[in-house]
């Protein structure tokens, strides 16, 4: 996988973020265009290309979520955008409460605050599950684990959009 190669890493899901950062800085220094000011035009071009790839690789691999998305795509999985059905009912109620608060009904506030807490907790749970799946897959590459990661990423994306929405509304309509 190109981004792993750029940083000289084995294609593993679980990575040490300090190590990723160090590799990025070391290699960026090594390939910095300033060091190639007197080099041939081919070498200059190579340095620019490497710098660009390193930047993309660091951006993708430093964060577990974007790293997993990259890893899944490189493994040939098409990332679906299905909403998690087990959450829809709750999301619907949450949206009802958001609408009430927007309409000035303050009685919806405690429900939203509780939902915010619950969904934030779900984000933490999703991150913990991802870390566990990463280790499992690195030890024994199994397609079923990739599917679990895929489902967790979908749920995480959906929940994080919700949390953002609820936070926004609670702040906009915050009581004096």
């Amino acid at each position: 996988m190109k981004f792993y190669d750029a940083l000289g890493l084995e294609p593993k899901l679980a990575l040490d973020s300090d190590d990723v950062k160090k590799r990025f800085y070391d290699r960026s220094r090594q390939w910095h265009p300033d060091r190639f000011s007197r080099a041939s035009s081919e070498e200059k071009q190579r340095s620019e290309e490497m710098t660009a790839v390193l930047n993309d690789a660091f951006r993708a691999l430093r964060d577990p979520v974007t790293r997993a998305e990259y890893f899944l795509r490189e493994s040939g999985l098409e990332l679906s955008k299905d909403a998690p059905p087990e959450l829809l009912e709750e999301v619907f109620d949450l949206n009802m409460a958001l609408e009430e608060l927007r309409g000035g009904d303050e009685s919806a506030r405690p429900q939203l605050a509780a939902a915010q807490e619950r969904f934030t907790g779900m984000l933490g749970d999703a991150d913990a599950s991802l870390a566990e799946y990463f280790t499992n897959y690195d030890e024994k590459p199994d397609r079923a684990v990739l599917d679990e990661i895929h489902a967790t990423l979908n749920r995480r994306r959906y929940v994080s959009n919700l949390v953002r929405e609820v936070e926004k509304e609670l702040n906009v309509h915050s009581a004096n």
């Binding site: 998690p84 059905p85 829809l88 999301v91 959906y158 959009n161 929405e165």
Partner: peptide, 11 residues
């Protein structure tokens, strides 16, 4: 029927 789209958060 209850359906949703994760990208835009529609329900």
């Amino acid at each position: 029927g209850m359906v949703g789209a994760p990208e835009c958060g529609d329900v």
